[in-house]
């Protein structure tokens, strides 16, 4: 098992803020919009240096999406930012009509996704956003795994023509990817090559998958771990190549098991190469208040849950 170490823990939303800071200096067409959550989205550095390219929208997410769509008419690259719940479910029709169907170059940047938002509870913990966004034709859906990858993804999507949903979160987690990485949309990242089971993980679950890989190794199981940071377009080739070798799969995501990464992978497997697949995901339920660690434990989204899923997948393969 390849060794991953870290010297610090950071939140992925700060990676987004750092990416925006860079974009503010590099790309004069980038405009940031926010619906009264500037501190939560870590936009202070961008705003300080580019006050004319920041648009405070107030608590009016629907209008923010529409204004963003309009800004693209005139060549701007709007980054519309708020919590994931308000960036997707609350404004689904605005995204559908004014952004996706109209093929507008809007970047919807969503923080505080999933259970790890924590104490605010289920009203704010969206677990359906990946599903909603990936169903929109033409939408690119990205869920990076740590601070550095989120920063790199933020910078990369400015150069991608077309609507993008970028999902990140609130908790501080290990920073284990390279600081100077180049983010390639739609290209899965091989975290660890293995032979016994393929673990496809996204977002905060990638670090959990690495820890699971180490536990499995201690038990003599050689896990392949792949970071699917881009849910759409999905790197089908990487998935099929991996399961051709391992013969079984685990998907891990901080999302409802319905409609997320797991279902996207399942579709590829059903169509091309049927192998056993186990889901590590929220089992069609809402979240609740608690610390991020407590919630991930209660809803079955930890390294130990990935280990158990990997063993089930291997057992089914060998049955």
């Amino acid at each position: 098992m390849k060794k991953y170490t870290f010297t610090e823990k950071k939140d992925t939303r700060s990676g987004f803020g750092a990416g925006m800071h860079v974009l503010g200096q590099q790309n004069p067409n980038v405009v940031a919009l926010c619906a009264d959550l500037v501190g939560s989205l870590k936009l202070e550095a961008f705003i300080k240096e580019n006050p004319d390219r920041f648009v405070q929208c107030g608590i009016s997410e629907a209008n923010m999406i529409g204004v963003s769509a309009g800004l693209t008419i005139g060549g701007k690259i709007p980054f519309a930012t708020t919590f994931a719940n308000f960036a997707t479910g609350r404004v689904y029709d605005q995204i559908r009509q004014s952004v996706a169907y109209s093929n507008k170059n809007v970047k919807i940047c969503a923080s505080h996704a999933g259970l790890t938002l924590g104490e605010d509870g289920a009203t704010h913990q969206i677990l359906e956003d990946l599903g909603m966004m990936k169903m929109l034709p033409g939408m690119t859906v990205i869920n990076p795994c740590d601070y550095n990858q989120t920063k790199a993804a933020t910078i990369a999507i400015a150069d991608h023509e077309g609507p993008v949903y970028l999902r990140f979160g609130r908790p501080v987690i290990p920073v284990f990817t390279d600081a100077d990485q180049v983010f390639e949309i739609g290209k899965a990242w091989m975290v660890n090559e293995g032979t016994d089971v393929s673990i496809f993980a996204t977002g905060h679950m990638v670090w959990e998958a690495i820890q699971a890989g180490e536990q499995l190794e201690a038990e003599g199981i050689n896990a392949e771990i792949i970071n699917i940071h881009t849910i759409k377009p999905l790197d089908e080739e990487a998935i099929l190549k991996s399961v051709s070798k391992t013969g079984c799969a685990v998907t891990a995501e901080e999302h409802n098991r319905l409609g997320g990464l797991g279902d996207s992978v399942a579709q590829v497997l059903v169509k091309n190469k049927l192998v056993p697949q186990e889901y590590v995901a929220v089992n069609d339920s809402f979240g609740e208040s608690g610390t991020p660690a407590q919630l991930m434990e209660k809803y079955g989204l930890t390294a130990k849950d990935i280990v158990a899923a990997a063993k089930r997948a291997i057992e089914r393969k060998n049955a």
Binding site: V31, D52, R53, V55, A62, N63, M64, I65, G66, V67, S68, A69, G70, L71, T72, I73, G74, G75, K76, P78, D93, Q94, R96, Q97, S98, Y101, S102, K104
Partner: peptide, 27 residues
Amino acid sequence: IRIASGSLGQGMSAAIGAALAKKLNKD
């Protein structure tokens, strides 16, 4: 045509965005 419309209530937001872009572009 510059944007889809018909799901009501969305056009003015888009027009405002286009107007802001004009201001940024000194148009």
